[in-house]
Amino acid sequence: IRCIGVSNRDFVEGMSGGTWVDVVLEHGGCVTVMAQDKPTVDIELVTTTVSNMAEVRSYCYEASISDMASDSRCPTQGEAYLDKQSDTQYVCKRTLVDRGWGNGCGLFGKGSLVTCAKFTCSKKMTGKSIQPENLEYRIMLSVHGSQHSGMIVNDTGYETDENRAKVEVTPNSPRAEATLGGFGSLGLDCEPRTGLDFSDLYYLTMNNKHWLVHKEWFHDIPLPWHAGADTGTPHWNNKEALVEFKDAHAKRQTVVVLGSQEGAVHTALAGALEAEMDGAKGKLFSGHLKCRLKMDKLRLKGVSYSLCTAAFTFTKVPAETLHGTVTVEVQYAGTDGPCKIPVQMAVDMQTLTPVGRLITANPVITESTENSKMMLELDPPFGDSYIVIGVGDKKITHHWHRSGSTIGKAFEATVRGAKRMAVLGDTAWDFGSVGGVFNSLGKGIHQIFGAAFKSLFGGMSWFSQILIGTLLVWLGLNTKNGSISLTCLALGGVMIFLSTAVSA
């Protein structure tokens, strides 16, 4: 259960009878995928790494000078000259100064003066180019299975845990398959586009800190620079940016070097996208990844198990997540596992009318040892309800109150669905055939309105939902006002479609 501690969480529900669903994975976010007769899966884009970055340009932001020398000439005696002028490691300046009897010249006039100092770069920052084909995306998957609280967001041991898996995709191999043991396998067909235009970005490294910066900004930095990788004795261009020549006297000129420019660069980098280094690879934390999940090989585990009949206890007080759902960790005293956990939410304890829904599909106890633990997640209705676990006299209950409203949740879900469709863009549509167009249209309606429909009408039977949709269509056909007619027709059509397409 990876997503319960992530604030940016998206719930995606598969269409009834569908074998695939489109998701948008982004750094700092987590996606929970639910479908009829399929286990619930949490998917998170953990890291995006980039390798084989080529150094484009380096800037010196802290330097020192040494070996200063000057040469001067009297008027009419030609130009002052130093051998160091031809050495690229030196920074030199030529000027004219007033000369006369007082400073060793027989004539009054302008004399030539040249001053040089050896330039040494102490600290530099480097910009590297990123090729999209060198990106690698690491995705962690977790099935809502027989897990306890100690396994949440624990990325170790996934090789031997059938509840978890790690997959890596690249532009050259965008397809992967996550093996989930008894739950089958989940196929991923990803489109490795981060949403960032790397043709316009460089990877900047300064003092063990890293950013993504725009090329134009990078090339306009007014500091000494050299092109390409460091060859040991780089040729620094624009050395004068960190060196200041003071007022010249008759035979000498003082040279000083400016202080470190790291603070000024940090100020200019305010708002830039931060990154990290992992050995020789860069780690990015921006952008998104679009994936199509193929769920035809994914299956529920323990459908044929019998119900657990022994007593359950709450190991922890049920807690609310950031998303309005409830996490419950229970301990089973029996030894008759594997068995299914009898769990439901009810409005009252007399009729036990089921409300809400299970995020953890078909929760089971897989071990036959005593005191096995299991964590599950529920989506309670707004208002008061009861969490009921167990059967008969051994069942345990917990009162729950959820604040908020169904309308607010439906609106929030619609906005999130619209954002998801905007990110998917043209990849969500198939114009290759008439059937493809209608299929894409259905998927689009489901992406945007599916979660809201589930919130508003999830407790009704599909037949009642179709009746309401048919009534809206009838009202649309018999209303003389054009805008009201079109609105009723659209709402009725969407409702009829979703009542037959969205899983219960």
Rank of each mutant, 00 (worst) to 15 (best):
L212G: 03
D393K: 00
L358I: 05
A54W: 09
G436E: 01
M206T: 12
D83F: 00
C3P: 00
K443R: 14
L378R: 02
G228Q: 05
A227W: 02
T267P: 05
L307E: 12
S185E: 05
V317S: 14
R193G: 09
G432N: 14
Q344P: 00
G182I: 03
T49A: 05
K443V: 06
S122C: 02
D67L: 13
M15L: 04
G435L: 00
G28C: 02
K395R: 15
E320H: 05
V31D: 07
Y59K: 06
V303E: 02
K395A: 06
T325R: 03
L212S: 12
G337M: 13
R402I: 06
F497L: 05
L293N: 03
T315K: 01
F11N: 07
Y202P: 02
V343M: 08
G324Y: 09
T254Q: 13
G337A: 15
V6P: 00
S485M: 13
T126M: 10
H288Q: 09
W225Q: 09
D296L: 05
Q131F: 09
M295P: 03
D161M: 08
G482S: 11
V213Y: 09
Y90D: 12
R299A: 03
G444T: 15
V437L: 15
A361C: 05
T470D: 07
G29E: 06
F285I: 09
Q36G: 01
K454H: 10
I466Y: 11
W400L: 05
F438C: 12
R357I: 05
S286K: 07
V326P: 02
I365T: 08
T335F: 13
V355E: 05
T414W: 10
L424C: 09
H266V: 13
L180R: 03
R175A: 07
K246C: 15
G259F: 09
P174M: 11
N52H: 14
G111W: 01
R94T: 11
H446L: 09
P342K: 08
H226I: 15
H210D: 04
M68E: 01
G337C: 11
W20Q: 04
C105Q: 06
E159K: 08
T500E: 04
S66M: 04
G302Y: 04
A428R: 01
S464C: 09
G404N: 08
T487V: 14
V437M: 15
G109W: 10
I341Q: 09
I65L: 15
L96T: 03
K301S: 03
V265C: 14
M206G: 01
D247H: 04
E55S: 12
S173I: 04
S464F: 07
C92I: 07
N163L: 01
A272S: 13
C291A: 02
A178G: 01
H398D: 00
I389G: 05
T366D: 00
A229T: 13
F312V: 12
M421R: 03
T414M: 08
P75E: 09
G337Q: 12
R193M: 06
S485L: 02
M345P: 06
K297I: 07
E55V: 14
H399N: 15
P381C: 05
D71H: 09
T76W: 10
V41T: 03
G356L: 02
A490Y: 13
Y90E: 10
L376D: 03
T487A: 15
L242G: 01
L300V: 15
G232T: 15
G5Y: 05
K290M: 07
T470I: 01
V423S: 12
E159P: 04
D87Y: 03
Q131C: 06
F108M: 08
K110Y: 06
S72V: 03
T315Y: 14
G444L: 11
L258S: 04
I43W: 09
L223R: 07
D247M: 15
F285N: 06
K419T: 10
K215S: 05
H401S: 13
L489D: 12
Q447A: 14
S503Q: 15
E276Y: 15
G442H: 06
V415I: 07
G145Q: 09
A422R: 00
S286Y: 03
P222A: 13
G287W: 02
G145C: 04
S51Y: 06
N134M: 12
R252D: 06
G184H: 08
P381L: 12
